[in-house]
Nucleic acid binder design. Structure first.
Lengths: 169, 169
DNA sequence: TCCAAATACGTAGGCGCCTACATATATGTC
DNA sequence: GACATATATGTAGGCGCCTACGTATTTGGA
């Protein structure tokens, strides 16, 4: 039924995406079922600001290992929702300093028990799946050492030009 | 630097998505570097048609474990590119029967060595990451047994209503 | 001191998937 | 054989991320 298990390498990206869609979708349904107005993409930035205090777009992108563009869009959404505020960094006008608003602090407090439940569910799932998180760590590390692009080009019968994938870090 | 490793459960979806983005992106760059006009999302449908012959939208969705909507959109893209053709199933006019065109067959032949390289690279990556594919299998199975939604709701302090996540297929 | 290069952030538009809803055809029951 | 229900596919629009490119500010030689 699930042919992707037999499709091997070329499908591994699709499989990862599929599982992430399931998890994201279920998380979205949890917030909806509890009547909480919350977007999945807010989590990283919000959690980061709650744990470590004010930060710039670039710092958040680096910590979350996503692009600054994605953080920038999330910031706009968070500001529109009144959860986060921002101002130009007085020491460097290129930077934007993000902080939680009072509403933001309250939202984080309200969500904390839910995030705890997430954590427990993830631990349970992780145990069921034979330490999936450790595997994710190893996958991250392996890709950081040598990107899939470089691996494929190195294997290709006729390697073509010497182009290389951009670094991910 | 990568805080997501410490963020635990609530970030697992984001981490999976992130890795899938890296892999998808590298795959896209490989096709681009070789000058091949190919979209990532074509792979599942194309590979399935090549391996098992003509199939309907629903059959492909089921085999690939994605929604029929996604397959429908991919079909339109493949038809526009002249790689796939379709006709109403004579036995059931609701169904659409997809087949590879001659161009489609040629494209699959041209891509076969590349997909082989993908496969080798994935095997290498898989070995580097301590059998990530087996972990993905277990994750699939664990989520099929009990969705993340159900796991979270079961753990929540005040479980709220008796709603449940829809089955995944 | 001036100006090229680097850095920080933003906008436009795309990708591959999704949910919600609409349409067309088939099926089963009275 | 008519009609409610089930099934197969499609359309509209959203999500969270991306690349490509543009603008504003800072930095570091010549």
């Amino acid at each position: 039924m699930d042919y992707t298990r037999g499709a091997g390498g070329a499908a591994i990206g699709a499989r990862l995406r599929r599982v992430s869609e399931w998890i994201d979708g279920d998380a979205t349904r949890v917030y909806a079922a509890l009547g909480i107005d919350f977007e999945q993409r807010w989590f990283g930035v919000l959690n980061q600001l709650a744990q470590r205090g004010p930060a710039s777009v670039g710092e958040l992108a680096s910590a979350l290992r996503i692009t600054h563009v994605s953080v920038s869009q999330t910031r706009q959404s968070l500001e529109k929702a009144g959860i986060v505020a921002s101002e130009a960094d007085p020491a460097d006008a290129r930077r934007r300093r993000l902080t939680l608003t009072e509403d933001g602090v309250r939202l984080v407090e309200r969500l904390t028990p839910l995030w705890w439940a997430f954590e427990q569910a993830a631990l349970e799932l992780n145990a069921d799946a034979g330490d999936a998180v450790a595997t994710l760590d190893r996958l991250d590390d392996a890709l950081a050492r040598k990107s899939l692009f470089d691996r494929i080009i190195a294997i290709m019968p006729s390697p073509g030009s010497g182009t290389s994938a951009p670094p991910r870090g």
